[in-house]
């Protein structure tokens, strides 16, 4: 138990700079400590994609439960979250105290547009991967998926529709129209 807490504590505190480094550390711990093999790790990562909440925290829950049941879940979650949550709050507090300094204002004028850029880059990466898969399934599916994506964005920004409603609509549209637009076999290449 203590070992489990310590292992996750180290993961939580070492992973500066966002999700991919945390996932990397979890993967490393799984393999080195013999928690999960590659196949179980990939399967767990897939399950994590379709349930609510932060992916890395869900990964922690699954691995903790698999190793030690509910005690494992509690040890792993507190190990991962408490130190990193505390640092997050302290950084925010430090920032709030310094917010009115002119130098901090100038730094922010650089950081904030960059934060928007990062957010767009992440969305773009996800969009390319989703639409790339639809492209493999033929033009009608590709068009449908593009419309769902852009439509969701417009429903939120222009009509101020509730995000939950937008997501339900997106899911239903894909489910129903996929019946009308079956996967197209790839055309044979012509030389």
């Amino acid at each position: 138990m203590i070992d489990l807490f310590k292992a996750w504590f180290l993961i939580g505190i070492q992973s500066f700079g966002g999700g991919s480094s945390t996932l990397f550390l979890i993967h490393q711990a799984c393999i080195q400590r013999g928690w999960l093999d590659e196949e179980a790790f990939t399967r767990a990562w897939g399950l994590v994609q379709i349930s609510p909440g932060i992916n890395l925290v869900k990964m922690t829950v699954l691995i903790g439960f698999y190793l030690r049941g509910w005690q494992g879940v509690i040890a792993s979650m507190t190990g991962l979250l408490l130190p990193s949550a505390t640092v997050t709050v302290l950084m925010t507090a430090g920032f709030t105290a310094l917010r009115d300094q002119p130098a901090i204002q100038s730094i922010l004028k650089g950081v904030l547009p960059a934060a928007v850029g990062l957010s767009l880059a992440m969305s773009l990466q996800m969009a390319v991967s989703l639409l790339g898969r639809a492209w493999q399934e033929g033009k009608p599916r590709f068009s449908l998926h593009t419309i769902i994506l852009i439509g969701s964005a417009l429903l939120l920004s222009l009509l101020k529709m509730s995000p939950l409603l937008v997501l339900a609509l997106a899911g239903m549209t894909a489910m129903l129209l996929h019946l009308a637009l079956p996967v197209q076999q790839k055309q044979p290449e012509r030389g």
């Binding site: 767009l120 969305s123 996800m126 998926h145 939120l156 995000p163 997501l167």
Partner: peptide, 14 residues
């Protein structure tokens, strides 16, 4: 469809 919606929403907020 849900994933597409999520990406659309995130872009819109950005």
């Amino acid at each position: 469809g849900l994933s597409l919606g999520v990406v659309g929403l995130t872009i819109s907020v950005a």
